[in-house]
């Protein structure tokens, strides 16, 4: 019997010492870890995929001065220096009012158009305590064309020059390298050229990026416009390019068949045919300033 007792005591002692060893090898495991919510960041490097608004917002107090530039069509050949002789430009400023609400203003040389927009993040992709598989943003913009009317004899109301665009941006960062978003869009034109064109244009944009290195990503976007809404001369917008990040700048270099850089333009008024080389070389330069 005695031997059993000794064995029992030895067992307890052994148990204690083992306990001691295990505790010492990992002290932090003694603390129970509270699960925190981790919000996904940097799904895209900029607030634009290329022309399309990405699901990213400016942070509160950040001002982004954006210079967007498109050269002429490459199909212009050597005479036009492959489009380098022409240029279309949009100068804009985006500002983060809060971390989930941003506004922006811009002026495009294309049809001398002024535009303003708002973007509100409704859902943020997250893991951990709060799990949310997607980011959802709502976007709305308005544009005013100030180009002198083609027919001065016709009565031209101010409202003729107004355009509106609404978008839902639904996206997900699937991995560090790959993000994808869908942008169902509605563009409203107060005035269209012919009765065959509809004032409302429904479209679906798809944009994505693949990170090639820490500071370079390959971006592409395509916007499908449902048939019989726009004139035959217009086609769907497709753009592909690179985001190159250098400290406070993001440099976006791309090819696009769209001339305009605002929604009503690149969704409903794209004329370039990729097959015919009617493609612009273009870039967006973004410089961020902290106002807070």
């Amino acid at each position: 019997m005695k031997i059993y007792r000794y064995a029992f005591i030895l067992f307890i002692l052994l148990g204690c010492s083992l306990n001691l060893i295990s505790q010492e090898s990992d002290l932090l495991s003694l603390l129970d870890e509270e699960e925190t919510t981790h919000y996904t960041t940097a799904s895209f490097k900029a607030t634009r995929v290329i022309n399309l608004h990405s699901l990213e917002n400016m942070s509160a107090g950040e001002l982004d001065i954006k210079i967007q530039h498109r050269f002429g069509f490459i199909s212009g050949g050597a005479y036009e220096l492959w489009g380098l002789d022409q240029s279309t430009i949009r100068i804009g400023a985006d500002y983060g009012v809060t971390n989930s609400f941003m506004i922006g203003l811009g002026r495009s040389s294309y049809e001398k158009t002024y535009d303003g927009f708002m973007k509100l993040k409704v859902l943020r992709q997250s893991t951990g305590a709060k799990n949310m598989p997607v980011t959802l943003a709502l976007f709305s913009s308005m544009a005013i064309k100030t180009l002198k009317p083609s027919d001065p004899n016709r009565e031209n109301y101010f409202s003729n020059n107004l355009y509106y665009a609404f978008q839902m941006i639904l996206g997900r960062k699937f991995s560090d390298a790959f993000s994808l978003q869908l942008s169902p869009s509605l563009v409203h034109r107060n005035l269209v050229a012919t009765a065959e064109e509809s004032n409302d244009v429904v479209a679906l944009g798809v944009g994505g990026r693949i990170k090639l290195s820490k500071r370079v990503s390959l971006n592409a976007e395509y916007i499908y416009v449902w048939p019989d809404q726009i004139a035959d001369i217009y086609t769907n917008s497709f753009s592909i390019g690179f985001d190159i990040e250098t400290g406070g700048h993001v440099f976006q270099l791309h090819f696009s068949n769209s001339t305009s850089m605002i929604e009503k333009g690149f969704i409903a008024e794209t004329v370039g045919e990729w097959g015919k080389g009617e493609v612009h070389l273009g870039f967006n330069i973004s410089r961020v300033f902290n106002l807070k």
Binding site: T36, T41, A42, A60, E62, K214, E245, V288, N290
Partner: peptide
């Protein structure tokens, strides 16, 4: 022993924080 979540570091500039985590 110490342990800290890298993502919990708060910077003055949001862009710095993003670059810190990403790059």
């Amino acid at each position: 022993e110490w342990a800290v979540l890298i993502q919990g570091f708060q910077f003055e500039k949001a862009l710095m924080q993003e670059h810190f985590n990403e790059n």
